[in-house]
Design a protein around this nucleic acid. Structure first.
Lengths: 310, 310
DNA sequence: TCAATCATGCACCTATTCTGCACGGTTATC
DNA sequence: GATAACCGTGCAGAATAGGTGCATGATTGA
């Protein structure tokens, strides 16, 4: 209900180029360019300046964008309160999340919502946490399930979002089936310190998590291989290349020659999974309902997997 | 920058029918109908209900409209702050006011703005105070000059507006040139209590002012004639039909056989002339400048007229 | 019963707005 | 210093949202 061009400006403020803004919002670059030009004309403000081969927000532009944060939060809040007060039904609902969340949490949520609200048009987008925040700003999605992270761009207390902890997803260790410890049910990181480890590329969210887990117990793992997808991690382990960490939410899918062990000891690494919404919108009945469903599903999946795999 | 359909809804909330909303916003009735229908679809809320041959806001609708007041005030405030911070120029500026204000205050203001801001598109609309408030809500105008009044629909402290007193326009008395008191420069209301009075129709803003002036001194005037325009008042007086009150801002235009006297005594009736803007927008540089110009002009006109007529 | 008032649907049209492509300017790379 | 990559913008054409005007049905008051 806030003018679409203002939303576009906010997205631009986030990513800095017309092209990226176009990609995020779903417009073409020309459309974004035209929208921002039109916005400046209507408001009578110069919001952008040429900067090399790109554009840069002017002081006025930054000021305006900063000011829209509470404005949008207030609209979301109003909208949510009206929905609640009037017992109304939403027509569209966008969800976002990273791969294991999308599979384990968002898919059941979407299915549940689809059956309880037949008229509701539910859309799920798989995207990594940073992009989820972008999509929330761009109003492409209304709720995101992500791994908590304090990135350089989005902090935990960003005024544009509200976050609710869904669960702390413990990291298990996965080792080859023929490993000496394979018959055990638990292990400590110290026991595995000398193993060749599989992790993700430096700089990724998971890599940060990985190193944090080991610094907590004061050992330095030997990093042997890198993988992006959990599937690849598991395959590497199955091939005997090394051992790795795997969030309990990520399923083994009956992989050959791979055993999942709980981590015990003083360091029990977890990744915190949170739901994020635009600030103000959290009171919306649909979002409240979704958070409830997510919570239930998260708990159930967690305990189930505990029984299956260990 | 708030969606036009929300503005339309606000106007509807004010006036209650599609037709009146269309007239105020400048759309056609079908367009208003379509806009409101679309708004309900997008928000997924039922905002209106059939009520006889008309429409009525639902509870949700009223809730939503009430909630938009602070939202719009915040946007106006943000916009004003950005304009101020960035030293930017507005492209359109709408003014509204009742007839004598339009002639005496708004016309010079528009002229000044036109010369100091050549690129600014200034539009002046003559409208009575109540309609000026409506036009402010409909965002057809940005600043209104009106006679202060506490109507049943708009109070002094309406959360949608901010008001600044420009001047207290004293009411003079006008009497025929051949009246016994015509050679005097001042008169009291008591002296003229027994005269046949000319006033406006009951229910009008001016009539309220008129009776208030006399109740303040405890006399009941004999109402002989009614007139709407000041021109007509003056003509009636000139024709010897009676005496009347005339704000000092309203010019005699060299009418024949009419004399203007200052009112003295314990009751010095005035009408308070105020400038009204949408809440939040008062910090806008253009509005600040306009208020300054209005103030200067008001004072000058007031003192000038004092010298000319008395 | 008739007229007035009001909202709405429909056909048509206008004007906004988006797309796709080509172009000019800027930066990085070799 | 040439070349390639990247970025924003302008333009023609197309799609579409959104507007108007009129006819219609429903409701109320005379």
């Amino acid at each position: 209900m806030i003018d679409a061009r203002l939303i576009t400006l906010r997205v631009f403020a986030r990513c800095g180029t017309i092209g990226a803004t176009a990609e995020l919002t779903g417009y073409s670059p020309s459309a974004v360019s035209a929208q921002l030009r039109e916005l400046q004309r209507v408001l009578g403000m110069q919001l952008l300046t040429k900067d090399g081969r790109g554009l840069r927000l002017t002081a006025t532009g930054r000021f305006l964008v900063a000011g829209t944060d509470p404005l949008i939060a207030q609209w979301e809040s109003l909208r949510a309160a009206a929905m609640e007060a009037g017992d109304q039904v939403q027509s569209h609902f966008g969800l976002g999340g990273f791969s294991s969340a999308a599979a384990q949490l968002l898919a059941p949520l979407a299915a549940t919502l689809r059956s309880t609200h037949p008229l509701l048009e539910v859309q799920v987008l798989e995207a990594d946490p940073a992009r989820c925040f972008d999509l929330l700003i761009a109003e492409r999605i209304d709720l995101a399930v992500i791994v908590a992270m304090q990135s350089d761009t989005y902090g935990e207390d960003d005024p544009r979002f509200e976050q609710r902890v869904l669960l702390d997803d413990p990291l298990d260790v996965i080792i080859p089936g023929d490993h000496p410890l394979a018959s055990r049910q638990t292990a400590t990181l110290e026991e595995l310190a000398s193993e060749p480890w599989i992790t993700a590329a430096a700089g990724s969210t998971y890599h940060t998590l990985f190193t944090a887990a080991f610094t907590a117990v004061g050992v330095t793992p030997r990093i042997a291989h890198e993988a992006v997808e959990w599937e690849t991690h598991i395959a590497f382990v199955g091939a005997g290349l090394g051992v790795g960490l795997l969030p309990r939410l990520a399923p083994l899918n009956g992989a050959e020659n791979v055993v999942r062990l709980r981590i015990t000891g003083k360091a029990k690494p977890t990744r915190r999974i949170v739901a994020a919404v635009r600030r103000g919108s959290i009171a919306s009945p649909l979002i409240q309902e979704s958070l409830g469903i997510l919570q239930v599903n998260a708990n159930r999946i967690l305990t189930n997997r505990l029984g299956e795999d260990l």
